[in-house]
Design a protein around this nucleic acid. Structure first.
Lengths: 117, 117
DNA sequence: CAATAAAAAGAGTTAAAACTCTTTAATTAT
DNA sequence: ATAATTAAAGAGTTTTAACTCTTTTTATTG
């Protein structure tokens, strides 16, 4: 349902939001040790988060990751979309192919209400 | 977080509970077509459910799957344990290795409350 | 009791997710 | 300017989950 990658991304974002500022960047090493996430793998995930504007980063000595003006307001679902794509959002909660507004499954309406696309 | 297999198992169990009785068995074909789950794969999953007593089955012509006296009362978490193991239950919600009752993470207590082992 | 129909069991293959390593580019400090 | 440091990018490998096929066992029915 949710990938491990999503969990890592979420936790790393919170970690940077809590520990970092523009004048106090958080290094990859620091995050991966602090959260127990494989170093190289987390690198890839962080790349993605920065690319999508969830966080900012700089290279070079004393470089690292830090929150930007949006970070605190980003809906969790944005991160979910980045790591896991839209699958959770555009398919039936019960996996029924012909489920739609006309022929809703028992969960259709409740589920639609919390998808907030 | 939850495997696809778990979703299949859950849906198939409900399908059999709804459509089957001891004198009206539900065939694998029927379930897999009704729910859009790959035939052979579902076979494996059903095997497991029967082995663990979630459902009953008989072989032979007009054989198939049917609910037993427990089926309706089985906690969803039993099925989760069968398909996904205990991982969801015995590790920290935030994935922090040194999280425990003494050194709880922010979610520890809330999460423990809903693990109901 | 033979033929048939169904699930169970065994033994895989394929595809996707998780993870690693190496090289390159950017930044800082000397 | 050069060396050092750090993230980005590229190009993988490994592991796990998802899925498939074949053979065997069990039950039913004519």
């Amino acid at each position: 349902m949710f990938s491990k990658t999503f969990g890592y991304a979420l936790r790393a974002t919170v970690y940077v939001a809590v520990h970092g500022r523009i004048d106090k960047k958080v290094g990859l090493q620091d995050i991966s040790e602090g959260l127990g996430i494989p170093h190289y793998f987390l690198g890839k995930i962080m790349q993605d988060l920065v690319r999508h504007g969830i966080l900012d980063s700089t290279k070079g000595p004393s470089g690292g990751f830090f929150p930007n003006e949006h970070t605190a307001d980003i809906p969790l679902t944005n991160i979910l979309k980045i790591t896991d794509g839209n699958l959770v959002f555009d398919q039936c909660a019960l996996g029924i192919k012909r489920c739609n507004a006309e022929h809703p499954c028992p969960l259709h309406d409740d589920f639609a209400a919390c998808q907030m696309k």
